Simulated scan of single mutants.
Amino acid sequence: MRRLLLALPFALLPLAAAHADHHEDHEAHGSLGAHEHGVATLNVALDAQALEIALESPAMNLLGFEHAASSAEDQARVAAARAQLEQPLALFGLPAAAGCSVSAKDLRSPLFGGPAEKHEHGDDDHAAAHESEHSDIDAGYKLSCSHPEALEGLDLGVFFKAFPATQKLKVQLIGPNGQQGAELTPSNSRLQL
């Protein structure tokens, strides 16, 4: 399943290129991989009973800042965001009827602290400067769903309410109906699987 999720961006590359070309005149940043405040990427793969979800977002969208959390208020924001990200069943609006359980999760950001969370640069000053400019938060989830037929879609309304600075989710999906791309917003927060 991990290979399926890792292959997702490559499988959807023609769709992404067509989408970028189509919106080139309407958006200043047509790149799907750029660090763009207000925009996050969500990759979803459903294969039989296995559901994988990968979120990539600028920290600004989830925390309201991208610098190291030095104040008590910033540290509380980081802890609150991390606690919300630890609850993927609620955050991604998975229906209870699908019987999904989390088998693995991986949250990464230089802002979460810890030696494993730092960028791997030879120069610590360069790493600190890079982190102060742009910090991301990546979250990966592996879920097992006993009744995947009940997974008709994901309702990301809770996600948008939890992280109101996120204005758009660029979604890439591989599921029972093939591959597709979508853009979700707070007013259009349902992803059909």
Rank of each mutant, 00 (worst) to 15 (best):
L62C: 04
A68R: 15
G30T: 03
D74W: 05
D74M: 15
D47H: 15
E27V: 11
H19V: 01
A68D: 09
Q84P: 00
N61A: 12
A59Q: 05
N61W: 05
N61Q: 10
A80R: 15
L63P: 00
L46T: 06
S31M: 04
P88K: 07
A34W: 03
V44R: 02
R82F: 06
G64L: 13
S71V: 11
P88A: 13
A45G: 15
S70N: 14
A48T: 10
L51G: 01
A54T: 07
A81R: 00
E24W: 02
D25I: 01
S57I: 08
P88G: 10
A79V: 07
S71R: 14
H26V: 02
A83Q: 14
D21Y: 04
G64Q: 11
R82P: 01
G30V: 01
A48W: 12
L85F: 06
H35V: 07
A90V: 12
A81E: 02
L32E: 03
G64R: 11
E56V: 14
L55N: 02
E73Y: 08
H23Y: 09
H19L: 02
H29N: 11
H35M: 06
N43G: 14
L63A: 04
A50Y: 07
S31Y: 07
A34F: 04
E56Y: 07
V44G: 01
H35T: 06
H19G: 01
A83D: 14
A34I: 06
E27L: 08
H19Q: 09
A28E: 08
H23S: 04
S57V: 06
E86N: 13
H29S: 03
H67R: 12
V78I: 10
L55H: 02
L42C: 09
E36M: 04
G33Y: 01
V39Y: 03
A54R: 13
L63Q: 00
